[in-house]
């Protein structure tokens, strides 16, 4: 269990590497998107470890907010308003 969590944290650091080093803004955005999905998995781990089911509520909310954030960033990259 602990080994798996360490591996997942390693994944997060690989994402952070891409966010820090990404040559273009879209590269960084991809890193943020993937990091958001990884955090959902991390919440599931925490739920199993502690046995409290409200961690899954955190996971669902995080998935929703991460999705909306990704769409907003993508629209920002396209360089136009939200109405189109």
């Amino acid at each position: 269990m602990i080994v798996l969590m360490v591996l997942l944290i390693l994944c997060c650091f690989l994402c952070l590497y891409r966010i820090g080093m990404g040559p273009t803004p879209p590269d960084r955005t991809v890193g943020i998107d993937i990091l958001g999905t990884l955090v959902v998995g991390f919440c599931a781990f925490t739920a199993i470890l502690t046995g409290k089911d409200w961690y899954m509520n955190v996971a669902i909310s995080w998935a929703l907010l991460s999705f909306i954030g990704t769409i907003a960033l993508a629209k920002f990259l396209e360089g136009r308003g939200f109405d189109e």
Partner: peptide, 30 residues
């Protein structure tokens, strides 16, 4: 916990490709 995890899995399965699609389009247009 299991039911919530299943709902969350379905949601991730639907939203993640949509996000990737939007990002690819945004990157190409930028």
């Amino acid at each position: 916990m299991g039911i919530k995890a299943l709902l969350c899995a379905i949601f991730v399965l639907l939203s993640s490709p949509t996000g990737a699609h939007a990002l690819a389009r945004g990157a190409h247009r930028s």
